[in-house]
Design a protein around this nucleic acid. Structure first.
Lengths: 134, 134
DNA sequence: GCTTACCTTTACGTTAACGTAAACTTTAAC
DNA sequence: GTTAAAGTTTACGTTAACGTAAAGGTAAGC
């Protein structure tokens, strides 16, 4: 099932290869309810929506999110129900997530500068040690 | 031992309170070799260097670093030996870390924009639903 | 018809990063 | 002199996020 007829669908190994994860990982995400592929017999068929969700999960991982947090992010992208209660709760979630990202942004900037300094100190040490530009 | 005489030292509970972590967590970091407080009898006495390291660890955590990665970060801040080999290795580490941060930065920017859109869609839904500005 | 390449399910194993509890010591306060 | 607050060690428990292995089904290529 390496190349499904429908160009807008994907096999599990296609996604695994594209995003450099194992099929086990993808199935695990399904187990946790983050992905819900269709089935052709026993075989999983992923839509481009599933693919997007997987992308979101992996981006979340790079930012240190748990799967639960990524689940929230997905929900923020594709809101299910429109109940007023739920909408407000969703908005609140989005706002605190944004403020978290703001904090992360700041952390990264500071760490970036610190690392810059460290690198230069190291390069200086290398020079003084008689080893030229690296 | 809540207020050591020396103003440049800290008790474990002082640090725990300041950074909002448990003492267990701080001792755990010591167990992993990330902190090395002095002792006054049995009691741990933390220097401001220890405090800085703890700060680095927690910043790392906010960015999704493992403790091993934070250990590397600490090493980048306070290089121990000046051997040419080690310096080069350190510089390499700094550079790949910087490029990782660059990726995270990009991820955050994109996610920020996406969340912005989502929030506005939600606010629109709220309006159409008859519930004004939130 | 047999190997190869995918796919499946089930299930036990593993690692990181602490939490939680027990049992005990030391110092400060009343 | 005893209660309270902080400190200590030891040790078992827990959760997340998969890894790894076993055992088997299907479909294509030679």
């Amino acid at each position: 099932m390496n190349i499904p007829e429908n160009p807008h669908t994907f096999s599990i190994s296609m996604l695994a290869k594209e995003f450099d994860v194992t099929t086990r990982t993808i199935r695990f995400y399904e187990d946790k309810g983050l992905l819900t592929p269709k089935r052709q017999g026993q075989t999983r068929i992923y839509s481009s929506s599933d693919r997007t969700k997987l992308k979101l999960i992996l981006r979340g991982k790079r930012l240190g999110f748990t799967l639960e947090e990524s689940r929230d992010i997905i929900e923020m992208y594709s809101p299910g129900q429109n109940n007023e209660q739920q909408l407000k709760k969703l908005i609140d979630g989005i706002r605190t997530r944004k403020s978290n990202l703001q904090q992360q942004l700041h952390d990264i900037e500071v760490m970036m500068l610190d690392l810059q300094e460290s690198e230069e100190r190291c390069l200086n040490s290398l020079n003084e040690l008689g080893a030229p530009g690296y």
